[in-house]
Design a protein around this nucleic acid. Structure first.
Lengths: 345, 345
DNA sequence: GTGAAAGCGCTAACAA
DNA sequence: TTGTTAGCGCTTTCAC
């Protein structure tokens, strides 16, 4: 890579001149070289190399009307984003996929309700070609915002909104929360457990709802005293476990809606000298690294491929951005989950 | 906000026409309105409002040569980024500051050594005005890359590189790791502890080095058998603690280089029935939320304002990007730390 | 297959 | 103070 005086940037014009061709031909070569004779292609390529030419992105965007950038919108005012590897992993997956397609990732963090205006303006401002958003709460304004902004969007996690009839469904990627929960609870049942409790997540998050539904699917005659509500944090899991033990000292298993809460629950059980899985079997959800492996005992839990979900989101979005005809509106995808057996159940 | 047929975007031309002024005047108003008479300003503003005009960013960049975007480069191939809230918090601070200055955040995740080429190309490609980078390892190639790319860069964390004489020092923001460590160890000493051990982080990270140096500052006659090395993870902290107890069962205090390792150490002490702080006092580093508050017992630790560091990084970079003359090259800043007393020491 | 030329939407001299 | 005009660097018809 030739080192130039910093700040100087050769233009396509310069490349064309050096290669002895027109700007148009140089442009064709830079953009793939279709329909240009081999010798000319080589000449141009050499000029590019020698000059250290890098296309001016702004100029390109101005004429093509494509920015080559995608916004990732994260609305999570809670502390949760700080202690939850969930986002980091999804973003990693997204980043990999976008990078592979020369697309930039513009991060939009929503700090508060007042920010929605800013986000709307940005999204409608032609800065990005599409958006990826995480919608966690049932009353999330994000779906409405991206719809209004009129840019293709794929959501991470099932949005809580029920689609109005006639309105186009919002495309999303989500794990099979309900199915995973079903498998987990069925597993506890097959183990012979009879009083299977559940520690659920915040009821305004669709993943929590879906996992609770999966629990209900298996335990049709669900006893409400066996269900406690947490907040997807370690501490809330501990509290919920204590509450359950208070109410139902006879419980012999718990299906916990995420690993963080499960680790809190395990701590409470250990502190009270209750054997796991001997007296109480515990199954978590997420297979979060490294939490699940390092609990005492190691946690049996439901694995979901979070990074893969991120990749998939990006993939779906990029496909809908593709102008070569097959740029159909993306469908939603539910990714599979698998039960990982460790020692807690 | 007027809803238009999606895809249509009014131009400055349209605004000017509607306001009955020239494009130049419209442009002036949109960019602050200096030197335009009030009534015209109002007219233009109204036209903007009515048309729902949003400036075309590409066109503007093309002529001003400023992108209004900043890259955040994160090179952390390790698992660590997944379990460490450190980055999320810094990014949050960065995001807030950038947003307040209408600057976009482009996220660049470095997945492996092969990625450095890509990053270099991107940074020199005029996509962004500057960069913020996290340099954690002493052999990090990032400083060299951003220098070669020739764009202003501010680092998070002291880069391990010793600056060649004559070469411009790399500007960075870092916590006062050494000073914080000094205060922590001195505090243990003031408590009357006489055999103060240390669990350090990976020696290729400057923060770990600096904290170790602070420990040494106080314990000049440092005994090597009192020092163990961890990897900034819970498990490694537990291992290091076990190792130390093996070697020096007589130790009466431990200064641990971060809270994650401290929580592992506490677990080991608890498991062995060693009273904290009765027999062994423990001080951590980071005051990580929620870890430090929720250990058993709650952790006495050194607080650093991570989000503030992020803000500061952005602030320094934006200042050096400012073209109004005072755009001096940024200096480095060391942010203060404070000891937070809880129950473990 | 290749080149000439128009124009994307905007800012910044320069004129008026 | 306001308007006119010349590009910024690129892609893309349209001729050749």
């Amino acid at each position: 890579m030739p080192e130039q005086s910093p700040g100087y940037r050769p233009t396509l014009e310069a490349v064309a001149a050096r290669a002895g061709v027109s700007r148009a031909t140089a442009s064709r070569v830079v953009n793939g070289g279709d329909g240009v004779r081999k010798p000319l292609v080589d000449k141009v390529l050499r000029a590019v190399e020698e000059l250290g030419y890098v296309p001016n992105h702004a100029a390109r965007t101005l004429v093509t009307r494509r920015t080559g950038a995608v916004a990732v919108v994260i609305a999570e005012p809670e502390v949760r984003i700080f202690s939850d590897p969930f986002f980091s992993q999804q973003i990693r997956g997204i980043s990999k996929e976008l990078t592979a397609h020369d697309t930039q990732l513009v991060l939009l963090l929503v700090e508060g309700p007042g920010d929605f205006d800013r986000i709307t303006r940005y999204l409608s401002g032609g800065h990005v070609d599409g958006a990826l958003a995480f919608s966690l709460h049932t009353d999330d304004p994000l779906p409405a915002i991206t719809r209004r902004a009129g840019i293709p969007t794929v959501f991470g996690g099932r949005p809580g909104w029920t689609t109005d009839p006639g309105e186009r469904a919002v495309p999303y990627v989500d794990a099979d929360n309900r199915g995973g929960a079903r498998v987990a609870v069925q597993y506890l049942r097959d183990l012979g457990r009879e009083r299977i409790a559940h520690i659920g997540g915040p009821p305004d998050q669709t993943s929590a709802m879906d996992r609770l539904d999966g629990y209900r699917d298996v335990l049709l005659d669900m006893d409400p005293t066996l269900v406690a509500e947490g907040a997807f944090t370690v501490e809330s899991g501990a509290r919920a476990m204590a509450e359950l033990l208070e109410r139902r000292p006879d419980l012999d298993a718990v299906f916990v809606a995420n690993d963080l809460m499960a680790s809190g629950a395990l701590r409470v059980l250990r502190d009270r000298g209750i054997a796991v899985p001997g007296q109480v079997a515990v199954v978590g959800f997420d297979d979060m690294d490294p939490v699940a492996k390092e609990t005492d005992p190691p946690l049996t839990t439901v694995n979901q491929d979070i990074e893969g979900q991120g990749r998939l989101m990006a993939k779906l979005l990029l496909r809908s951005l593709d102008r070569t005809g097959n740029g159909a509106a993306p469908d939603s995808v539910i990714t599979p989950t698998t039960l990982v057996r460790r020692a807690s159940a």
